[in-house]
Amino acid sequence: MERYHDMQLFTALAGQPSLASAARHAQVSTVTLIRAVARLETRLRVALLERSTQGVSLTAAGSAYLADCMRLLLAVDAAEASAKGLHVQAQGNLRVFLPLLFSRYVMAPVLADYLDRYPEVHLATHYHDYYPNLHEEGFDVAVLVGELPSSSLIARAVGQVRYVLCASPDYLATHGEPAHPSDLKQHHLIAGTDQVSWDFHGYLLKARARLGCTTVQGAINSALQGAGVIRCLSYPVHAHLQSGRLGRVLPLFELPPLPVHVVYREGRNASMRVRSFVDHCVAALREHPAFHLA
């Protein structure tokens, strides 16, 4: 039992910046956590933590062992939940990782609908624009845009998005429509930085933006008012493209689409709360019009 308890305490390190915060998360003292790690290191005869003047971090062996501990403990929880009948209904805490912009434009109604359907689930969402390590950071589910790194995660494809170039019909009527990406040097470009570097199929555009916007929504608003040409992922502008308020520019030079996946780490032993959330997201996102742009 002591080994099982030590493994439980060790998994508290997932997603925590320090031993002290991990101990608080596990509701034990820092000394108790340190002793549990020390017992594991003695039993395994390998260092799990690397200690320095800046603090502690997981060694390569520690990262691998943490992932294994989390997988094994989840399997134990799943077995107990199954015996108790908890797999029948979704309940408990669920930690979800979502891309920041994607969440703003696509995920908000999906999350609200899920919470209405499953009132016993408590959802903690984390918004970042990087690829997380679900095992080390303690996430149950993630929605990821782009090619997936190789891993043991279970991935379900929901659609694809792409970078698109667009401008308002009034702007194009006044300034003309470019025939090649090089023609954009003569246009009013809207971007997040002063120096534009836009990659197209067979051409890399380097130019200077006429209008700089620090947010994607600010750039979209400016384009809707006829201020120039923007380039962004398709999901923030799909409704404007469908309504005709924005027109698609140079579609033949667009880069290949990027896949969107819902990923999770528990496989067939996933709890009902994980399976219900994954199934709900997959069904909702596959029907979302943002993924129907050719």
Score class of each variant (00 low, 15 high):
A81N: 10
R51S: 00
R117Y: 01
L44V: 09
A142P: 04
T193M: 08
F102Q: 08
Y130C: 14
G55C: 15
E50Y: 10
P109Q: 13
S276R: 13
L148S: 00
H280W: 15
M107S: 09
H122P: 00
F200T: 13
V263S: 07
A207Q: 04
S276M: 09
Y235E: 08
N221D: 15
V216D: 01
S276A: 15
N133T: 07
F200D: 09
F97R: 12
R286A: 07
L33W: 02
A26E: 00
Q91E: 11
G192S: 08
R162L: 12
L74E: 04
D129K: 00
R208G: 05
L250E: 01
Y65Q: 11
K206I: 05
V216G: 02
G85M: 02
E254P: 02
V158Q: 03
A78R: 11
P149Y: 03
L148W: 04
P259L: 03
Q89R: 11
C213N: 07
V28Q: 00
P119E: 05
A270E: 02
R117G: 15
R162F: 06
I220Q: 05
C232V: 12
F97P: 14
P236A: 10
V216Y: 03
E177T: 15
A223D: 12
A83M: 02
D68E: 05
L250V: 09
L58G: 03
A90H: 10
A209G: 12
L233D: 10
H126T: 13
L134P: 08
V106T: 07
A142T: 10
S222Q: 14
L58H: 04
A75H: 04
R286Q: 12
P99Q: 10
V121W: 00
H288Y: 01
K84A: 09
H122V: 12
A173T: 09
H188S: 13
S182I: 12
C166Q: 14
S168H: 01
Q225W: 00
W198T: 01
R286H: 03
A179M: 02
Q91C: 12
A61Q: 10
E287Q: 14
